[in-house]
Amino acid sequence: MSSEWPLWEVFIRGQHGLNHRHVGSLHAPDAELAMKHARDVYTRRNEGVSIWVVPSAQITASAPSEKGPLFDPANAKVYRHPTFYDIPDEVGHM
């Protein structure tokens, strides 16, 4: 009858004003306990001000094999970067 507790991914906001960041994963029977475990496992030294826990099974990830088709289109668009444009020195900082 034994079944392993499901896996959860843990995200922590390190300080006010920063994004939540993935810090690792853990097993827990439900969201409430996942939160408590995350507190014990990942914030024993004031590492955070907020925790998100998400069932790992709920995450959709891009496949490594799609890396090319997914990201290459952006490579071709150099004009999206400010350095693409020459601004004459006389104009000053822009």
Binding site: S2, E4, L7, G24, S25, L26, H27, D40, V41, R44
Partner: peptide, 23 residues
């Protein structure tokens, strides 16, 4: 000792990403 438990958990999770289960 609590830290050691935490270290074990970080490492088990790292191993699990390779396709082995905790149990």
């Amino acid at each position: 000792v609590q830290d050691e438990a935490g270290h074990g958990l970080y490492l088990y999770c790292a191993a699990e990403t390779l396709g082995v289960s905790r149990d």
